[in-house]
Design a protein around this nucleic acid. Sequence first.
DNA 1: CGGAATCCCAGAGGATACTG
DNA 2: CAGTATCCTCTGGGATTCCG
Lengths: 133, 133
Amino acid sequence: MDAAVDSPVGAAVDSVQACPIAPVVDLVFSRWTTPILWTLNEYGRQRFVELERRIGVITPKVLTQRLRQLERDGLVVREYHAEVPPRVEYEISPLGRSLAPLFHSLAQWSPNLAEVEKARHHFDTTQPAHRRP
Amino acid sequence: MDAAVDSPVGAAVDSVQACPIAPVVDLVFSRWTTPILWTLNEYGRQRFVELERRIGVITPKVLTQRLRQLERDGLVVREYHAEVPPRVEYEISPLGRSLAPLFHSLAQWSPNLAEVEKARHHFDTTQPAHRRP
DNA sequence: CGGAATCCCAGAGGATACTG
DNA sequence: CAGTATCCTCTGGGATTCCG
């Protein structure tokens, strides 16, 4: 149950000096964290099951893990209400909300994905020939 | 040797509708791609070994894999020079360069990592008590 | 409802060679 | 130098079950 587990970019574990933005990427763009933060930012405070449904295929176990991590990182706030049945709500924190411009930048770049698709097709059809050094 | 292998955020594989920026995150912030793109963007055109050294701990095999993927995605351009010894240079493409503002946004957010560190410490010291629902 | 506990596995990616 | 080729480890995370 170690909290500092994943490093998709290898920030903490690997060479920090090589890429200064690696820690931020690790924090925000680890697996599942982006959909979670995005959903919380978009739909506001919501319950565990709502998150689960909106995100889609995530399992409860993994959702819990990532929410804990995000809570520990201070990006998400968990609110427990002692009722029957129990009710838990998750909300993005101010610090988490400060990531919104980043998300907007990403969204603005996304039209370029069409270029990427074209590049892939081009590569797949023409490259095997010229790839021979 | 499949090219569309990783999906840290689960864009292509999972629920695309849940998070519109997931495809971009998959493209740019997959493991190793950020340091590679960042280094290419920062230091300009360079050879395989230079990349290897600057990034730090990456193995040749993995570096090759990711470079191929980025080349296929149209974010990186590979230039082969038939000399002895062979010389290969990698350069970020215009499409890849269009990601630079994103990197700057990330860099600008990075001072907030101090807040994250504080939140983690706070969580680790005080949470085990109040975490009981 | 909101998890925690267990078991399990594919597959990313590291280590270690070898080659054109 | 710029990769390929194998082998092998490790772990994120899926499936399932149970609990307060």
